[in-house]
Design a protein around this nucleic acid. Structure first.
Lengths: 248, 248
DNA sequence: AAGGTCATATAGCAACGCTATAGCGAATTG
DNA sequence: CAATTCGCTATAGCGTTGCTATATGACCTT
């Protein structure tokens, strides 16, 4: 194994184990069994090292998803879903890599980000060629990437504010709805009538939930708390059961 | 001017002028004309200083927008638009502050982020009370914040990939469409429809109860039984509340 | 075998975040 | 009014960081 990849491996390891998304060149050198000049000979810079590490992690992750990533769906919406889910999965499984990827220290140089961008754009171009897009592939790429990035970063770096992660799926569908033309993807499955019925349940639940907050009701506090919890579930899962795992 | 605010001012100044979103405690001390222990006495930590600086910038910005921020629109969608636009304006005018706000070094502690989150949530709660939301205010807050964050970060830290900034507006509308109920948007104010929409707890409970009987929901059987029981209680209870609070 | 090139090591610099300790003035107390 | 306490600031310096000038070895070319 070459010295360069040994350094990369060590750095990658340290980053995965570490609680924070930071690395000292010294610790990497120690872990890899080399001295500083060697590291700087190969990567030039700490930033260079970090960028290489992020790329390393990203490509490694993509290889595990290669089968899924290679499939081109008939429906762009499904392409977007797959990409989005991969994106989120990577962020969740490698939070430090992901944070690093968007940290100001690496951002402008990170090839991983550009690569993700490019992959998404190519899929969308195919969709556009089939007239399945409402907007230009450029705009769609930017919207999807920005939303996915925001969702992933929020989830992994502000877990207290984003306790419930179902919002990510909702956001995904919101973007898809705004980007994919209606005829192309009437709904993930089945009838769209069920969809509107579901939404009625959701609206009724949301309404009742807000009333319960402000009006006195003949329930104990404990009952009201539990009820609020269920109402939120009802309000926020518009597509249960129909697309089995798509919400996650 | 107190020493503490002099330090804050100096740091804020350096951050605005600097090309990178980073600061050395030494440079801040020099610029403020104090020595290290003074800084650490007041802020405890570099992280503490950065958090204080971000809060400082955020509140300063909000004060310039106070008039706009104080208005509560009849339509939640307009509230969301205002908030979103302020968010983006802040990010664009103070890129370093914004990056810092979401940098891993400050993120978990930043009161500014939590404050923004809280403000948005309160607006959305008002909207939910007026039945203008399709989803719970919690979910809506998370969706909007995540999308806005992603859009802002993309714009300011990946300008090469996000050359055209019109996508931000498109993303904003996409999220609004997914979060605000369809009837709410076109009809702004006090039409006669408001009367028919004025549902009580009882009618909302009755509606939800009947839906729950016919539609599949993500609750266990036991939960659904108990829920139905409570809903019946809510639907059948004679009016305890005064209908005078109709303005809400 | 001589010369050149690549890769690694020795040793150390300047800048960083942070702190043990001490001095200072103002407020509080006897 | 003097003594004491207490909050704030300065002196000086520790340990760590990113990085490099220089030297040494291994290998390839001629």
């Amino acid at each position: 194994m070459s010295v360069k990849s040994r350094i990369l491996d060590a750095a990658s390891d340290l980053l995965t184990r570490s609680a924070v998304a930071d690395l000292s060149t010294r610790s990497v050198c120690d872990a890899a069994g080399v001295t500083a000049p060697t590291l700087y000979h190969h990567f030039g810079d700490k930033e260079g090292l970090l960028a290489a590490v992020v790329d390393f992690g990203w490509t490694q992750f993509l290889e595990t998803k290669r089968a899924a990533a290679a499939v081109v769906h008939a429906d762009v919406a499904d392409d977007i879903r797959t990409g989005w889910n991969n994106h989120m999965a990577f962020a969740r499984e490698n939070p430090n890599f992901y944070k690093l990827m968007w940290s100001p220290a690496v951002a402008p140089a990170s090839a991983a980000v550009r690569e993700a961008h490019r992959m998404l754009f190519e899929r969308l171009e195919l969709g556009a060629a089939r007239e399945q897009l409402k907007v230009s592939p450029q705009a769609a790429t930017q919207m999807i990437m920005a939303a996915a990035t925001g969702a992933a970063l929020s989830l992994i770096s502000e877990p207290e504010l984003f306790v419930d992660d179902s919002f990510a799926g909702q956001l995904r569908e919101a973007v898809i709805a705004a980007v994919v033309s209606d005829e192309a993807a009437p709904a993930p499955t089945r009838s769209s009538r069920a969809d509107s019925k579901q939404r009625t349940v959701a609206t009724a639940a949301a309404t009742l939930s807000s009333k319960l907050r402000s009006e006195p009701v003949p329930l104990t506090d404990a009952e009201r708390v539990l009820m609020q919890q269920w109402l939120r579930t009802l309000a926020d899962t518009p597509m249960i059961r129909r697309t089995a795992r798509s919400a996650e």
